[in-house]
Nucleic acid binder design. Structure first.
Lengths: 223, 223
DNA sequence: TATCATTAATCAATTGATTAAATTCTGGTT
DNA sequence: AACCAGAATTTAATCAATTGATTAATGATA
């Protein structure tokens, strides 16, 4: 029996506590290697902690994974600032196509920066993506708190742009295609860098190019 | 020492031989679960073969994986019929934008069918994608014989469409965005089906919709 | 002192690999 | 056809290494 703390974890493990270091290490490793290929020893080593501490704080390996999934939704929303986006915008029913395009461009650019450049976010973005491809226990949470948040925000803006209803399949498909283009900057990073003759990571010019091409695509949604 | 056959395998293991069944089973499992999460016992069970036969035919688990990677390039080229595409087309330097658009639409539609509907191809498509995300020994082969084949064919057609050089970064980015949209039909299948309120797989109408939206996007490349 | 936290050691289960024996297949000879 | 020797293939059992989990002892903290 583990009498330990089990539940009732302090709101959001902060700083350099063992618990926080395990979450960070796990996020990086699960994102890079996936759940099965990541061993508890790797996590403990990377966190500079003992293997036993995983059980102490999270029950077991899967418990740590689920705890990580719960954090990711917050990370994503903070990074993209979806909340602020609407705070400054007018009420939904009087959002002009012009302003919708402007907001859509802002959000797309933020997403491109995140998926293409943010070396730290890269890790947990991959956790989200892996979970969409091979859903496990954590899928529901990540879908609802991460994927759907972004997807529905985008489809709302696109619906205003196209002067359609946000529930139409065509709007959803456009949204999915939009997300696919950006996601593939991360998922297909290795082959694209090859194609571009670059090494290491995307150059500043490449990111600008991606945003430019994306902006043109978005503009053409209005017609 | 294993004096067995080692190299010199009969061109392409056919039919219901143990070797072919191991390749099939491995393709499905590696594609679904990834290399690490797939055990040799799973493969043997699914193939209705003995665990030892993996070593007998392929040396070890990794050998089977690499053998599978070598088959995938052929599968892909057959399914997309890239060879035929150009057999019927005029020489490269006199390919009009109109015809390029037509060929591009054909290829894109074939890819959509493959990524969205082909339950059998789904497995080894995922092997290709996994390898682009987390390159291993098999990356070089799959990139050169699968990914690059498709990517360079698409970028050539797009370059004709945009009246640009096929080496320009903007053409490569358009190509990558095109591939990303289609790949995400597979990678993001679970969340998109949710969004569309469908279960199981894409409906016929959804596939038609995807092709229609894609066709509009391609048309807009001409401007 | 009593709770919280960390550590090292150990356990059972799983995994990829190996082996030797058993079985099937093949070509050549009578 | 019948037979057989040798190769090819399949099988069951076993091995060492790795893995997630557990435990009891120790250290730190309030």
């Amino acid at each position: 029996m583990t009498q330990k703390k089990a539940n009732a974890r302090p709101a959001l493990a902060q700083g350099d506590s063992t618990e926080a270091k395990l979450l960070d290490a796990g996020m990086a490793l699960f994102g890079e290697l996936g759940f099965k290929a990541t061993t508890t020893r790797m996590i403990a080593d990377r966190a500079g902690a003992n293997i036993g501490s995983i059980a102490y704080y999270f029950g077991n390996k899967r418990g740590l994974y689920l705890a990580i999934a719960e954090h990711i939704g917050q990370h994503l929303k903070e990074k993209l600032g979806i909340a602020q986006l609407f705070a400054e915008a007018p009420p939904a029913d009087e959002l002009s196509p012009v302003l919708a395009l402007e907001l859509l461009n802002q959000l797309a650019n933020k997403m491109i920066d995140l998926f293409a450049c943010d070396r730290e976010a890269e890790k947990w973005l991959m956790v989200i993506m892996r979970e969409q491809v091979n859903p496990t226990e954590a899928f529901e949470h990540l879908y609802k708190n991460a994927f759907l948040q972004v997807h529905s925000t985008l489809s709302f803006l696109i619906s205003r742009l196209m002067k359609r209803s946000a529930e139409e399949d065509e709007v959803l498909m456009e949204t999915h295609f939009l997300v696919g283009r950006i996601v593939f900057l991360l998922v297909g990073k290795t082959p694209l860098l090859r194609r571009l003759g670059q090494t290491g990571g995307y150059s500043e010019e490449t990111v600008v190019l991606a945003k430019g091409v994306m902006a043109r695509h978005l503009r053409q949604l209005v017609n």
